[in-house]
Design a protein around this nucleic acid. Structure first.
Lengths: 216, 216
DNA sequence: TAACTGACTAACTTACTAGTCAGTTTAGCA
DNA sequence: TGCTAAACTGACTAGTAAGTTAGTCAGTTA
């Protein structure tokens, strides 16, 4: 779904605007927050409605059901991840820069949408991938594993099990986001999703990942 | 809470045993699964009761409320993590073996209780640490950070930001458990929590972590 | 300006779920 | 063996949350 300029502009106003596109966008935005925070089951349509300043019935009017809204949120949220590998053509790069580039892209994607990890987590643990078949995320793992295998083949990476290593790389990238609310106590309550902190995380994560695959 | 031998023994039988200790242990075990899978809000006391082959009222009889049961589960589940640093005396080891030992202990702890990561995530994301003050987990981060700082000071570890690095180490250890249900598709549906796979994860995680902190 | 259409609302229904309680059963002891 | 306290049960209640519906409101067109 493409969000129009109009929709973007009015998105945070509380006034009723009587514009289908805007209302849907507002509901989607509020729903993403709600689902990221509480998961599908514990999410409350009433809260989403209140946040959106429309009435609960609008959710059913536009999205049929709570589930329907959830699926719409998932689709929008993961559209970017699915197309991660395509935008950077990794074939042209050698394994080391390819890995670096891909991880950088993945981290940038997460930074742009910090709700994604939580939604992913809920979908995996609570719904067991019922609504999102994880094909997008599996793509991430297999792409990483391929890069790692190539690197091993030409002797620029250490010996490792590609799939486990890929999982660990994703773990390094994602964990920070899912735990951010508690990690802040390590910085005396500092906001962990601020641009500076996210940048610091990205930098540390990339260094850690590149170091973890290098030859010893 | 110490689980007696008697309780352990009868834990998985379906027959009514009319033993307070056993019943409580059965409820706790079923509740741990339920809370790990669904979180506090989406957990259903009726499901816990059904799993336990007792009646829902017993939960309130022994644990007063759903929240009370949840707190009891948290307390039991995290008692081990809190005392992780104590059992191995890290002071006597130099940073490298200390890090290796500590991570090994942490991973062993997770393998023994694979529900722990999911419970941790729910508590962090959904309840924002309302019931578990994360002092236990914060201890893990600070211990790791201290080891890393020592290693940097004597020049056996590369230059890194200790807290971010500690977070990434924990991420590598934990992520596998939270995503296991989806990761299995990378192995054609293989069970990811089997002893062999857990062992493989532990081994890969330790290698990865040790490689990630070494001097380049 | 009247008919029309889609956006929106308030009030309602139905289903579910945590928690209660009055009463029953059983283990173990006198 | 009978008594008692603790373990346990089934039926109930109050509250909550998803989903429905009849109808209102605002913009648009002829």
């Amino acid at each position: 779904m493409v969000r129009s300029e109009k929709a973007k502009h009015v998105l945070d106003t509380a006034h009723p605007v009587r514009d289908a596109e805007v209302t849907q966008a507002k509901i989607l935005a509020a729903a993403e927050e709600e689902f990221a925070r509480h998961g599908l089951v514990a999410a409350r349509t009433e809260r989403i409605a209140a946040q959106t300043h429309v009435v609960k019935a609008m959710i059913h009017y536009y999205f049929k059901s709570k589930e329907g809204l959830y699926q719409a949120v998932l689709e929008r949220a993961f559209s970017e991840i699915s197309s991660l590998g395509e935008q950077l053509d990794l074939e042209q790069l050698s394994p080391k820069p390819a890995l670096k580039q891909y991880v950088r892209g993945f981290l940038a994607c997460l930074s742009r949408n910090p709700n994604l990890p939580a939604i992913l987590f809920y979908e995996a643990i609570q719904n067991r991938g019922k609504y999102y078949k994880w094909t997008g995320m599996l793509q991430v793992y297999t792409t990483l594993a391929e890069i790692l295998e190539q690197g091993m083949a030409i002797g620029v990476f250490r010996t490792l099990e590609p799939r486990h290593a890929a999982i660990n790389i994703v773990g390094v990238c994602i964990f920070y986001f899912t735990a951010h609310e508690n990690l802040k106590h390590l910085w005396r309550g500092k906001q962990m999703l601020s641009p500076e902190m996210l940048d610091q995380h990205a930098q540390e994560a990339i260094t850690t990942i590149m170091a973890s695959v290098q030859l010893s």
